[in-house]
Simulated scan of single mutants.
Amino acid sequence: MKIFKSKSNLKKYISGKKALEKSIGFVPTMGALHKGHLSLVKRAKKKNDLAVVSIFVNPTQFDNKEDLEKYPQTIDNDIKLLESVNCDAVFIPSVEEIYDSSIVAEKFDFDGLEYQMEGKFRDGHFDGVGTIVKALFEIVMPTTAYFGKKDFQQLQIIKKLVEKTHLPIKIKGRPIFREDDGLAMSSRNARLTKEHREAAPFIYKTLKKAKKKFGIENANSIIEWVENEFKKHPLLELEYFTIANEVTLKSDEKIDPKSKYRAFIAVYAGEIRLIDNVGFKRKNK
Results as ranks from 00 to 15, higher is better:
V41N: 02
F56P: 07
S15H: 10
K22I: 00
V95N: 07
T74K: 12
D100N: 14
K46S: 13
V104T: 15
D109H: 11
K18F: 04
L82T: 06
G16A: 09
T74S: 12
N86R: 13
D100W: 04
D76K: 15
S84K: 04
K46V: 05
E83M: 11
Y115P: 05
I103F: 09
K42N: 14
K35L: 13
I92Q: 11
E114A: 14
V41F: 04
T29F: 03
K65P: 11
K120D: 11
F62C: 08
K35N: 15
D78N: 12
K45V: 03
T29K: 02
F108M: 02
S102K: 14
Y13E: 07
K47M: 10
V57Y: 02
D63N: 13
K120A: 15
P72N: 13
D67C: 04
L113M: 08
G112P: 11
K22T: 00
A44C: 01
E83H: 13
T60V: 14
E83Q: 15
D88Q: 06
S39R: 05
M30D: 11
I92W: 08
C87G: 06
T74G: 01
K46H: 11
D63G: 05
V52A: 03
I92Y: 08
L20D: 12
K42H: 06
V53L: 05
V104E: 15
L38A: 07
D111I: 03
Y99E: 01
P59I: 06
M30V: 12
V57W: 02
K45H: 09
N77W: 13
K11N: 08
Q61Y: 00
K42I: 09
S101A: 08
H37N: 09
K22F: 04
